[in-house]
Amino acid sequence: MRSVVLLSGGIDPVSGRPAPPAGEIAAIGLALSVGGAVGGLHAGAPVPALRQAAGHGLEQVDCLQGGGDAVAVLAEALFAAPPDLVLAGRQARGGEDSGMLPYLLAERLDWPLLSGVVAIGATAEGWLAVTIGLAQGARRPAQIRLPCILCAHDAAPAPPFVFDRARRAVLRVVPVTGEEGPGMVAVEGTERPYRARPRLIGTASGGGGTVLEHPDPAEAARVLRDHLRALGMLAPPREGAADA
């Protein structure tokens, strides 16, 4: 079994420093759990985040350098030497961040894709058993025909970072001649620094919230219930909907 993990030149959302996204680390963990040869694949120049990602368990990362559309470049590389399994994070960080790349790749290669994978099980007759993580801890078993693309759930177990592995990892530059494909359908628009916008209900409540001093227990219970309901944490009562 040969697995390829797709890596982005991730940057950290808080610091803006290079750092692999959690989903890609989880993807490496899934690939390692399958066993066999595991390599990294990146469309672009060798950037620092790749070495950090490799520290989680990759010996080599091939960097497809030379431009062109990422989907086309990756598809060509995967088509030339098809692995059994391609793994990716839920979405890259630092570029378009749309999470579309694995889907476009699957479309291009005509491979099946499953996302939200938290665990990989056994293979049998060209089928791979996986577990998909859904909201609120729900799980769904699935089987998928190989070769395929799997997007890791952020909560899939992350393999530890080992500096020794990171420093020894080979970032191999593979020159490619870029083909300008349709690939990602670009959205035009104006780009500017991110501005955090408050969510609809008292979000990011860093303080200064409502304080209710020494109410009687019944009053406290009523306020709690209404607040939890307003937050959507508590289903509305049977009689009718009072949800926002």
């Binding site: 950290d12 808080v14 610091s15 420093r17 290079p18 750092a19 950090q52 520290g55 393999p159 530890p160 970072f161 080992v162 500096f163 592995r165």
Partner: peptide
């Protein structure tokens, strides 16, 4: 890379942030 989970978190944050 054998550290306790909590330590792994602070080391990762130290690297990324």
């Amino acid at each position: 890379g054998q550290v306790r989970d909590g330590a792994a978190r602070v080391l990762e944050a130290s690297r990324a942030r």
